[in-house]
């Protein structure tokens, strides 16, 4: 299990998964043994304040019914965390499951709290919301493993490259013809940024992916749109009043066009000599 080579962000995430695995297991046992009394204990604060309402006691049968579901979900989360802990890179799809579980529960806790103002929902929202945020914050830098971009992010960047430079037209070649090497060069470029900037660069790619929704052109992601619709979205983003959107397009252009046009064969398409031809030896002293 421990022979997998991990970077420091993966190690932090792995430790977090270990902690969650143990916590969910303990919680499962706790729910099974005394889960029925939990809302009553949590209600102590509600009874002390006039602002928050107490949670009404449920009938015995109904409580047991929901408790079984809660225990089974805790077991599932324990197992998921155990799998992720064993190899975060290989079992990345399980992370999505943990994140969705915590996102949905924290969202519903919030909704129920806003409607009822009862303390247990508030406690549930704070607990699960914190678990969701911590897991997400640790997962973002760890998710790329030894690479800088995930496969999804490479896919988004390839889509953006294809939108910017499609095949045909003024010259035949498009981004797709040089996608693999351009994406590798884009990764090289992003890898030279500080870690936090790398995360921002990756988030910008995801923002571009959901830009059809932001610009209200479509409810599909950029990757699922045809070329004409993607072009329309990018034009809308580039001329948007909100300057952050224009920045996102600038970043997309930099990460797609910069690496593409550093390729000698693409430069030749523009009628330029390859950059390498200007690297002549000189008589100046070298250090």
């Amino acid at each position: 299990m421990m022979n997998v080579r991990l970077n420091r962000f993966e190690i932090w995430f792995q430790r977090w998964m270990h902690l969650l695995c143990v916590s969910f297991l303990v919680t499962a046992i706790f729910f099974l043994v005394c889960g029925g009394s939990l809302p009553r204990w949590l209600d102590t604060a509600g009874k002390e304040t006039s602002i928050l309402a107490p949670y009404p006691a449920s009938s015995h049968g109904e409580g047991a019914f929901w408790r079984i579901l809660a225990v089974s979900m805790m077991c599932m989360l324990t197992w998921s965390c155990r799998r992720i802990y064993s190899d975060p890179g290989k079992n990345r799809s399980w992370v999505t499951l943990v994140l969705i579980s915590k996102l949905v529960s924290s969202f519903l806790y919030l909704v129920f709290f806003l409607f009822t103002f009862q303390v247990p929902y508030l406690v549930g929202w704070i607990t699960d919301g914190a678990l969701f945020l911590i897991t997400l914050a640790l997962w973002i830098p760890a998710s790329t493993g030894i690479h800088v971009l995930t496969e999804t992010e490479r896919d988004i960047l390839a889509t953006l490259g294809d939108t910017l430079v499609p095949r045909g037209g003024a010259f035949q070649d498009g981004y797709k013809d040089h996608a693999s090497i351009s994406l590798d060069r884009a990764e090289d470029l992003i890898s030279a940024q500080p870690k936090l900037t790398q995360i921002v660069s990756r988030l910008l790619l995801h923002l571009m992916d959901i830009s059809p929704i932001i610009t209200c052109i479509s409810f599909r992601r950029m990757r699922n749109l045809p070329l004409t619709a993607r072009s329309r979205v990018m034009d809308r983003m580039e001329t948007h009043k909100i300057h952050w959107f224009r920045w996102v397009v600038f970043a997309a252009k930099l990460y797609a066009l910069g690496p593409l046009y550093s390729l000698p064969e693409v430069q030749i398409n523009l009628g330029l000599a390859s950059e390498n031809s200007s690297h002549e030896a000189t008589s100046h002293p070298e250090l």
């Binding site: 430079v165 045909g168 037209g169 003024a170 990018m234 034009d235 580039e238 066009l257 430069q267 523009l270």
Partner: peptide, 19 residues
């Protein structure tokens, strides 16, 4: 071109025509 093209407006065939 790696950097100048990021300053040109538009995308797709319109951008390629400029490139």
């Amino acid at each position: 071109p790696s950097f100048l093209f990021t300053m040109l407006p538009g995308c797709g065939h319109r951008l390629k025509d400029l490139m």
